[in-house]
Design a binder for these strands. Structure first.
Length: 597
RNA sequence: UGGGGAGUCGCCAAGUUGGUUAAGGCACUGGGUUUUGAUCCCAGCAUCCGAAGGUUCGAGUCCUUCCUCCUCAGCCA
């Protein structure tokens, strides 16, 4: 039909290429799935896996999710969705000291908020895909014994400090531990004693037995099981030994029949161990081929924010922000309160792509994505954020001197006439923006100026007749006269053409409330760049609290309702601080403004 | 200085086994529409792919050397 080249699909990246190739070659087509995680025997008794691929999103429940996690979530859940697979939502909870149910809950909330679920998923919509690494402690323990039995692991009596010294350096080989050649029987009995609580924390440790001279330090007999008497949020006090990430993660993937285990670049050096471990366990018959494979991509770096867990904790604990859900924070809880939307994050992740190159994404990309979906989805409303009074001196008053009121009609969405119009009342005294009037206009300014004409949006064209200032010289009131034939929507509305078009709210009808104007938390694109302290780069004006005058319809909205305040930006009714009939608003993001540039 | 990665337009990022004019998005610039200086629409925007050599009829894609950046020495994940 046409000779055009085939278009490159949106979101094409090296991981999708790998998945497509694997599916095409049937690499994972022989896998079986017993319906629940388990070892080789467990799955061998199951059915051919209806899921073409299995990916996983494995957060440790020791903190709040942030924008970087959103990239991983959309990647892993997106892959599963696009290729007929399942994404396992798995808590990597192998270190009880740092983890808690609070984090399990907040992480679950965030994932759900982004639009993903773990109930009734999979090709047959009957799977619950939320898992906990801690549910595999028995199997992991068995795997450790299997390693010992086959001479691939030993119990070391060295202290952590001694181990560090013996490990060597980046350029020097390490030395074998004096305990490296304990017999299988001795190792087994010692390991069982560890499990049974016969030894103090830190006194003994199980290590894999690989190569202390390996150029890859991760292969110099890495620790795989440590003694740690700590209460676990899921297993309670059942265990006093816990597996290390290095050991636990590959096994978790294998037990869950994961096909593509996708993580960030810093785990690249870990991959040889991942493959080594799974290889040994497969030899021992505990796992079956094909084994899961690990792939790495570059983690997200965003300008003007910090995403490291440590820094986020500092910001919260040192009260630089109000909490984990502070709207200025890049946490998903914060983004949600700020008014950011899940579809915006989806757009964002599609737009930034996935690769192995370290990169810094400009924060405006994220803002643009939010603008793009909010423009489409948000109804328009009118809000005056920095009010001065406009008096229409020739506007009709009743016999008692009170202003008359008339209805103006404002479309709820200019791109969607089917959403209808709403009434906004007009009267003699209005609130307008301070910046919409200039006594001596700068070049190119086309709003209200002395003797000038401007349209009151959805109302009349008015002519400025004068203004008043206070003692400090600030304009407090502008006077004008309206042109009766020019009302919007009437035949004469176009009789006079004006370029300026300003919004307004009737003083007598306005809903006065608090509005928080958020700006970026950091004033530098790369907070803490070089050796500087990132806290020094905090923007002292990241939030401005104002009292704004809003159109009356805004009084009765629900928490998390989102609107575009015309000519200002997108705002959301705060989900925490809004009371019934008394919402307060957060500015999500401003509109683009070609004039201020 | 050992190992493992990465370097394509200001910011991201496609570029199958080398094949002839280096996708796309964001940003930017110019123009149009518009009762939001918003949205939308149109046009422009890398003779060049970290650098230098080489192989080839032909290289971002192959070879050599070099440069820069990231990452690994937790009983964290």
């Amino acid at each position: 039909m046409s000779a055009e080249k085939t278009p490159i699909p949106l979101g094409s990246n090296f991981i999708r290429a790998i998945v497509e190739k694997d599916i095409e070659q049937g690499v994972y087509s022989t896998r079986k799935w017993a319906g629940t995680p388990g070892d080789a025997a467990h799955h061998a008794a199951g059915q051919p896996d209806p899921a073409k691929i299995r990916t996983r999103f494995p957060p440790e429940p020791n903190g709040y999710l942030h924008i970087g996690h959103a990239k991983s979530i959309f990647l892993n859940f997106g892959l599963a969705r696009d290729y007929g697979g399942v994404c396992h939502f798995r808590f990597d909870d192998t270190n009880p000291e740092k983890e808690s149910q609070e984090y399990v809950d907040s992480i679950s909330d965030a994932v759900k908020w982004l639009g993903f679920s773990w109930e009734n998923v999979g090709p047959e919509h009957n799977q619950n895909s939320m898992y906990f690494a801690s549910n595999y402690f028995d199997l992991m323990y068995r795997a450790a014994e299997s390693l010992i039995e086959n001479g691939h692991a030993y119990v070391d009596s060295q202290s952590a400090e001694e181990m560090r010294i013996m490990r060597g350096t980046l350029t020097e080989a390490g030395k074998n531990s004096p305990w490296r050649d304990r017999t299988v029987a001795e190792n087994l009995s010692l390991f069982r004693e560890m499990r049974d609580g016969k030894h103090a924390d830190g006194s003994l440790i199980l290590r894999s037995k690989i190569d202390m001279a390996s150029p890859n330090i991760n292969l110099r007999d890495p620790a795989i099981y440590r003694i740690k008497r700590a209460h676990h949020h899921n297993t309670g006090d059942k265990w006093c030994i816990y597996p290390m990430y290095t050991f636990a993660h590959p096994i978790e993937d294998a037990l869950e029949q994961i096909t593509h285990s996708i993580c960030t670049l810093e785990f690249e050096d870990q991959r040889p161990f991942y493959d080594w471990l799974l290889g040994r366990l497969a030899e021992a018959g505990m796992l079956a081929h094909p084994l899961p494979k690990q792939y790495e991509f570059a983690r997200l770096n965003l300008t003007y924010v910090v995403l490291s867990k440590r820094k986020l904790i500092d910001l919260v604990e040192d009260n630089h922000v109000s909490g984990w859900d502070d709207p200025r924070l890049p946490t998903l809880a914060g983004a949600r309160r700020r008014g950011y939307v899940a579809e915006g994050f989806k757009l964002f992740t599609d737009r930034i792509g996935v690769s192995k190159a370290d990169s810094w994404i400009e924060y405006t990309i994220l803002e643009d994505c939010m603008r793009e979906v909010l423009n489409e989805s948000s109804e328009r409303r009118i809000a005056v954020l920095d009010p001065i009074k406009l008096v229409i001196d020739n506007y009709a008053v009743d016999a008692d001197g009170k202003s008359q009121t008339e209805d103006c009609f404002a479309p709820n969405h200019p791109l969607k006439p089917e959403l209808g119009k709403r009434v906004v009342p007009l009267s003699r005294e209005l609130w307008i923006e301070r910046e919409d009037f200039m006594e001596t206009p700068s070049k190119g300014y086309f709003r209200l100026v002395p003797d000038g004409l401007v349209r009151l949006r959805y109302g009349y064209v008015v002519k400025c007749t004068g203004f008043e200032k206070d003692a400090a010289g600030n304009v407090t009131t502008v006077h004008c006269e309206y042109l009766p034939d020019t009302k919007s929507g009437t035949p004469g509305s176009d009789s006079i053409k004006v370029k300026g078009n300003i919004h307004w709210v009737s003083v007598a009808h306005a809903y006065e409330t608090e509005v928080r104007l958020y700006d970026r938390l950091f004033k530098e694109a790369h907070p803490g760049a070089g050796d500087s302290d990132y806290l020094n780069d905090i923007n002292p004006n990241s939030v401005t609290l104002i009292t704004a005058q809003l159109e009356p319809s805004l009084k009765d909205v629900n928490p998390e309702d989102r609107f575009q305040f015309e000519r200002h930006g997108y705002f959301v009714a705060d989900r925490k601080d809004s009371l019934a009939g008394k919402p307060v608003f957060n500015r999500t993001v401003t509109l683009r403004d070609a004039w201020q540039k």
